Simulated assay, not measured.
Amino acid sequence: MAAPGPATPGTPFDPPQPPVIEGFSPSVYASTESFKEKFLRKTRENPVVPIGCLGTAAALSYGLFCFHRGHSQRSQLMMRTRIAAQGFTVAAILVGLFTSALKSRA
């Protein structure tokens, strides 16, 4: 039995380069964007997500501060608030995904 030949004749696979798929463009945007530009674009697309993230971080920080000070009731309240803020953030992400999916269909 003969050894099988290469699956795709031609140039071998080059790991640093993205694969070439006919009809698929890996980037929607013509130029590469920096972290700051991407962050600002994503914030403009869905401004509620960063608000939820900041609320989550604030509740966590204040809850840990209260825990360190020995205020257990306030610490428990802030941990519950953190859970609510996380839920709000996840819901905002899902709504943003849903609206972007509807936008791309139209």
Rank of each mutant, 00 (worst) to 15 (best):
L54M: 13
G55S: 11
T56V: 13
T56H: 09
A57W: 12
A58M: 14
A58L: 15
A59R: 07
A59I: 00
L60P: 00
L60W: 09
S61G: 15
S61L: 15
S61H: 11
S61V: 07
S61W: 08
Y62V: 12
G63R: 01
G63C: 08
G63S: 09
G63Q: 03
L64T: 03
L64I: 04
L64K: 12
F65R: 04
F65V: 00
C66L: 10
C66P: 00
C66S: 08
C66Q: 10
C66D: 07
F67V: 00
F67W: 07
H68A: 05
H68Q: 03
R69C: 03
R69A: 03
R69D: 02
R69S: 01
G70N: 01
G70Y: 01
H71D: 13
H71F: 15
H71T: 02
H71C: 03
H71Q: 07
S72H: 04
Q73L: 07
Q73K: 03
R74V: 10
R74D: 09
R74W: 02
R74M: 10
R74P: 00
R74E: 11
S75D: 07
S75K: 05
S75P: 02
Q76I: 09
Q76K: 13
Q76Y: 09
L77S: 06
L77T: 07
L77A: 10
L77E: 15
L77K: 09
M78C: 15
M78Y: 14
M79G: 02
R80Q: 05
T81M: 06
T81G: 10
T81E: 13
T81S: 09
T81R: 06
T81Q: 12
R82Y: 13
A84W: 02
A84Y: 04
A85S: 14
A85D: 10
A85Q: 14
Q86F: 02
Q86C: 13
G87E: 05
G87W: 02
F88A: 08
T89Y: 06
T89Q: 12
V90R: 08
A91D: 04
A91P: 00
A91H: 02
A92L: 05
A92F: 08
I93N: 07
I93D: 07
I93W: 12
I93Y: 11
L94V: 12
L94Q: 10
L94M: 13
L94Y: 11
V95H: 12
V95F: 09
V95R: 13
V95S: 08
V95I: 11
G96E: 06
G96D: 07
L97V: 13
